[in-house]
Every structure is written in C-alpha cells, then in structure tokens.
Write a protein that binds this DNA or RNA. Structure first.
Lengths: 335, 335
DNA sequence: CTTCTTTTGCTCGATTTGAGCATTTCTTGG
DNA sequence: CCAAGAAATGCTCAAATCGAGCAAAAGAAG
C-alpha cells in the first residue's frame, strides 16, 4: 500500500492520494466471509486495497476489477460503490510511512459479491469469517452474551460520563437505540452505527490505537469486541455489512452469492448468515415464491440426512415482472 | 493482494483533483427546487461546486458546509454523501480550464436538504424547479404526454438499432422496465437509470455535447427532454433524486424539508412533490399517525379556503420508538 | 421396518392496505 | 343571514399480507 504509488495532486500544497478499497463478500454454507490479507509486519488484517490510477483506469470500477484480478486471480462479479472515506487521520500511519506528513489518503470503498469462497492466489490473502470482527452481530442463536455482559455495561457507563445531563441522556438514548437495549428492537442494519459508537466510546482496539500517540491515551479495549483491522478497514467492512443487510431486502442481490443451483434451505441459511437472525422457514418460502424469484429444476439434492430437497435456480427475468423487488426476511420469534 | 505487492505498482504522473458537489434541495409548497448557479459564459446551470482542500478541511462534510456558507450564505442542515463520480471525461472542460490536459477531476457528491427555499446571497445562484431538468418524472397529474409521445418512441427505435437480436431484446426490456412502458409499473425511484438510459441513447443534450468533438457526433436531442446542466451535474442531480425518493420511504427525512409547524395537507403536498405521484389522503394520514411521527399543536391554520387545518409538528423522539422508521406513501389509483 | 430428519403443504387469526363514503367546519357569494 | 363550495377529518369494509404453527410426505439411518 505504498503511497508513492498513489496518484497525488497538489491542492494548495497538500497532497491527495486516491485509493480503492474492496470489500469482497461471499457466504460459505452459513457464514459470511470477507477477502482480506494479513500484513506480516503489523499482524493486522487489511482489505484489498489498490491505487486509483487515472492514467490507465477509465472508471473506478474498471480499476478495481483490474487489480483484484491481478492480485488474487479473482474475477469480480457484482460490484457497487459503497462510500468515500476522506476524514483526516483515517490513514495517518500509512501516510506517515509514505514520508509525506501532509498527504491525505481518501479512498473509495466498493462492495463486491462472490458466489463462492474459492481459494485465492496470493499467500497472505484468504477468506475470513466476518463475525470475528463483529461478534455481537450474530443473533441466530439468540442475543449474544457479549452484548449484555460487556457492551451494554461499558456503553452505559460511557453514557454516564457525558458532561451535561442533556448529553448523558442523549448518549444513553443512542446506546439503547443502536444496540436495541432495554426491550428496544434490534435492527440488524445498524452495524455501522454500532461500530462507530463502540469506536467513539473507546471500546474497540482501533480507537485505542488511533489515540495512542495523543496526549490523552485510552485504556485498553475490552476483550471479545472483535478483531481489529488495519487503518479504518473495519469501519469500511461495517459499512459494507450495513449496506448488504439493507439492500438484501429490496433488491434480490442474495443470488449474486449463490451458485447456479441451490436448495431453498441453503438459500435461507445464506440469508440468515447475512441478516444475522433466523428466519421462519415456511413464511420465507411463501414470500419467495410469491415474488417468483426462484424456479424448481426437477432435480433434487440427496444426502441431506432427511427428505431430499429440490434444487432451484434464480429466475433472472423475475426482475422484469412485478413491482416486487425485495426479499422478505420473516424473523423467527423474538431474539 | 497484499500491500507489499502494491508498492511496486508503477503509476503515471497524472493528476487528480477532488471536488465537492452539493445537491441542495428544498420543496416550495409543492415543487422540488435545487440550488444552482447560471454560468454566464456557457449559459448552463451548474450545481454548487468547490474544491476539497485537505489542508483546511478535516472532513468532506466540513469542507462542504464551509464553502456553501461562504458562497451562498446558506447554513446547511441535513447532509449525506451521495456518490463519488470519477469516470474519465466527466469533467473534461473543467480539467482543460485547469490547464492540465492530464488532470482527472473526481467529485464527491452530497445531498443536502433545506426546510425553505430562502433567497440566496450570490447573484447568479438561485432555486430552480427540478422538474425542468426531468419533465418526465412528474406523474401527479397522470403520466406525462412526453413519455408516450416522444420518449417511448425514440427509445424503442434506439432499441431496434442494437447489433444482434439478443441485444435488441435486452435493450427493449431495459427501456420498458426503467420507464414502466407497456403496462409495467412506473417506479419513481429509478430517476437515475432513466436519465442514464436517455443519455446512452443520445436523447439528452449532454450526450450530444459530450460527443460533439468525437468522430461520430450525434444528431440533436429532441425538444422537451429537460434542460441540460454543466458537466455531469444533471446526472448527479438524478442520483440525488433517486436517493431522496428511495430514502423518504424508510427514514423520516421529509421533515428536514418542513418548517417547525405544518398542516398535514402541506406535508402531503411535499411528499407528493418528491415522489412525483399523488397520494391517497386518508391512508397517508392513517399511516402517519400509526407511525407516530407527528403531533398536533392545538393551533389551526385559517384561510385555507375550507375547513381550517390543524398545525402539526415533527416528534423528534418518534425515532426512538417503534421499529417503524419509514413513511408510507400510498399511491392514489394507477397512473 | 421403525425412528429420525428434513422438506413441503396447508390453515387460521391478526394486521395492514386499498378504496371509498360520510360528516364536520370553515370561506365565499348572493 | 343563508346556501354553496372547499377542505379537513372520521369511519367502514373487503382484499391482501403477515406471523405462527400443525401435519403430511419422503428419504436416511439404525
């Protein structure tokens, strides 16, 4: 991720470097995976990152596809732009490494979906379970204990540290809202807000790391709040999760994560892996076939340890039909 | 894919310039307006635009607020990032002006919402009815005639120009989908797709302009397909409309466009102005108060030419309650 | 050939949506 | 002052959808 390789432009006298970040997600049976690489020096995981070169890249997307292909041998399918990150200090250590104190690294994040977590060319790179970065996001087996045991407690005491009564109340409200505490509903789409709140409260490693050089270093982050990533990559990953969890409900993008044929149970497991809660099987199927997204091939998949399931495939022309573009995700019970 | 492999990547000396584009929208009684400025030289309207200066701007948003304040005396309220535009040639004329043939202008687009279309400081700047750029987007009085009289015809003959039968079919399908032709439903959120399709088919002025220098100039665009804007600003505006029309249904952002007190009819007119179709009054109200977004103040607004309407205000704490975050927009009849 | 597991089909009440009628309460014109 | 018109507001009712669960069907495993 050498900065010298990044295109830079003098504005005033400061330099801007533009990079492209890819969050490439696939779902392996039941678990969401992300393509990342271990930096042997820092021991941190980093998302694939490449410089944007205006000389050779006609568009961001072309550039992205090109170097993902080069570096991982991976041919990207579905891709969409996520967000552009430009906050000061977001890549401070890297900029410093590049020798230019003034350099500002902005990066355009992209979300890519891959139908299978096929092995990758590069040595250090591989697929990592996304939940290791956000252990509190998995509610398939009920609310994770870390939420009530650690997060709720620490965040509430953080709320108590607010300066004025008004600020304390606002903080508490935000905490309860974003994490669905005190009987409020858990909203799985708020992954990014949750990460940002934890960061703000100094409860994730990155927050501690990023303020280490300052005059007011934070106490160490509690254990169990997920693994840190390089730079602000965990924030970018959280952005991707929020986007994916939201979009899955109004565009049939799950199918970008499926092979050409699949059973309805498999599809359900994948959706559950993404949204992070369990679905009501029958209602999920009812909604699926009302929407007309899938179509049975005659074949069945045997060896499932029970009645064999029929194999289905995505009807691409389903998009051309009704106004129904979304996938319903009927929650199973309360969590 | 690792960082180390990137350090060797040679990148040319091309320059990148980063700009910030603001789409600032307000709704004046019933019409959506956008803040824009007339470029006296080209006669084109342009969105507020400012350079991003990493020296003084800690974040994009701070930079944006700063120069919008400077240039227009306008204090931005609600703001969100839209998209980052980086395609080659998107700002060719500007880059040329900057004296650097090689320069690549990328710009980060933001959407801002203002509760009132208050007059602006700068001379050339002002509020412009958004429908003058997208006359086919207003379905409040039924389907606009331009849609069937001009757009459908021209797009279908464009579809016929496809090279292979497969491509022709695909084009036709896309045309019918995005514009809701042949009995398909009109989806108001697809403003961006519609503009891009018209651009691709060479039916908007910008498309003609942008290929004027090439070896294969296009015939003039048909009249009535909206006013052109500078650079790709109309595309950015379309992006903003799509975002706003989508988001209004799952986040209560309409209230960012309302004053502190309003009648339900006024609120409905504003929503109608945004989504571009008429709503069923009673059902709109029923949904509103089920969601608990608004609360009546005792006061009424007289002089409405009928029974006076009660004044309401937004309950900011409605966000803290149910899982209901969206505003229902019950369509009136078929259009 | 019985038990277990999983798929698949079906039911039923509660809620939400779509559409429209009816009533109230003003303004405005005779 | 009264009648007509214009909005706002209140209410109803059938259709569609949703949430939850029961039950049968079809293999696998012992």
């Amino acid at each position: 991720m050498s900065q010298t390789s990044l295109s830079s432009a003098p504005v005033g006298s400061a330099t801007i470097m533009v990079g492209l970040n890819a969050v490439i997600i696939s779902v392996d049976a039941t678990e969401m995976k992300v393509l990342a690489a271990l930096n042997p020096k820092t021991g941190e995981l980093a998302l694939p990152f490449g410089p944007f070169d205006p000389k050779t890249h006609r568009t961001f997307e072309i550039g992205l596809r090109e170097w993902v292909r080069e570096q991982t041998g991976f041919e990207l399918g579905y891709v969409e732009q996520l967000y552009t990150f430009g906050d000061e200090g977001r890549d401070a250590p890297l900029a410093a490494l590049a020798g230019s104190e003034e350099a500002r690294v902005i990066s355009v994040g992209y979300l890519g979906l891959a139908p299978d977590a096929r092995p990758v060319k590069a040595d250090q790179a591989g697929w990592f379970n996304i939940l290791r970065f956000f252990p509190w996001e998995d509610h398939r087996q009920g609310r994770p204990t870390i939420l009530t045991d650690v997060i709720a407690l620490r965040l509430k005491s953080w709320a108590d540290e607010g300066e004025t009564p008004g600020k304390r109340a606002a903080r508490l409200d935000r905490v309860r809202q974003t994490f669905g505490l005190d009987g409020l509903a858990w909203n799985e789409e708020r992954t990014l807000e949750r990460y940002e709140l934890l960061y703000e409260a100094g409860l994730v490693e990155e927050a501690v790391r990023d303020t280490a050089m300052g005059d007011c270093p934070l106490p160490p982050a509690p254990k169990g709040l997920g693994e840190a990533m390089a730079s602000d990559h965990r924030r970018i990953l959280a952005t991707a999760m929020s986007r994916l969890r939201g979009k899955i409900k109004y565009r049939p993008i799950v199918f970008e994560l499926m092979g050409p044929e699949f059973t309805l149970s498999h599809l359900q497991k994948v959706v559950e892996g993404i949204v992070g809660y369990s679905l009501h099987k029958q209602n999920f199927r009812r909604a699926l076939d009302r929407a007309g997204f899938v179509e049975g091939t005659g074949r069945v998949e045997a060896h499932t340890g029970g009645r064999p399931a029929e194999l289905y495939h995505f009807r691409r022309d389903a998009l051309s039909e009704g106004p129904t573009l979304g996938l319903s995700t009927p929650r199973l019970k309360e969590c």
